[in-house]
């Protein structure tokens, strides 16, 4: 928690999560989020975030603090931090990506989407369903049809010229 003297030197913001937890951060850290930046420009210092839960908010504040102190010399350190940051479950990643999207933090959004994409790449349709918690709503005939249509499309890329 920042002392009163520090508060005078640095402008502080209070973020309130969807579970009503409050976090005090420096303004310069917070404005990396476009959503927060817009509110700050409108004179707000208390920012309710009804779409962001505490668990995700703690991680995102960590991320913002780390990236606010970006210099040439700590490039490697930030890379390691980012790597650890995304090394989590799919459910956590989805929670984070929703929060990053709401907060409009483009570099974080980009990193999270890339991570999810990399991790679902090469997965079977069944695995993708489990990851996204969705049920297959195709009839077996429909599924076979899509499978066939795609198989032809992909074969076309390889075969044509080669007998």
């Amino acid at each position: 928690m920042a002392s009163t003297t520090e508060t005078k030197q640095k402008k502080m913001l209070i973020l309130k999560s969807a579970d009503n937890d409050e976090f005090e951060i420096e303004e310069s850290v917070g404005v990396q989020s476009e959503t927060i930046k817009n509110l700050v420009e409108d004179g707000f210092t208390f920012v309710p975030l009804p779409n962001v839960y505490t668990k995700a908010l703690i991680k995102i504040i960590d991320y913002l603090k780390k990236h606010a102190n970006k210099t040439d010399s700590n490039d490697e350190e930030i890379k390691t931090f980012d790597k650890d940051f995304v090394n989590t479950t799919f459910d956590d990643l989805f929670e984070l990506v929703s929060a990053a999207n709401y907060l409009h933090i483009s570099c974080l959004m980009n990193m999270l989407c890339q991570t999810i994409a990399d991790r679902i790449k090469d997965k079977s349709p069944e695995a993708v369903r489990k990851i996204f918690h969705i049920n297959c709503d195709y009839t077996p005939e429909e599924e076979a049809k899509i499978r066939k249509a795609n198989a032809q499309a992909f074969e076309g890329q390889f075969d044509e010229s080669l007998d």
């Binding site: 890339q114 969705i134 899509i146 992909f154």
Partner: peptide, 16 residues
């Protein structure tokens, strides 16, 4: 961010 080839299995997951 996925290549076309990788979108294949994503398309097979569900209608949405």
């Amino acid at each position: 961010k996925l290549e076309l080839v990788d979108l294949h299995s994503v398309m097979l997951t569900c209608r949405r």
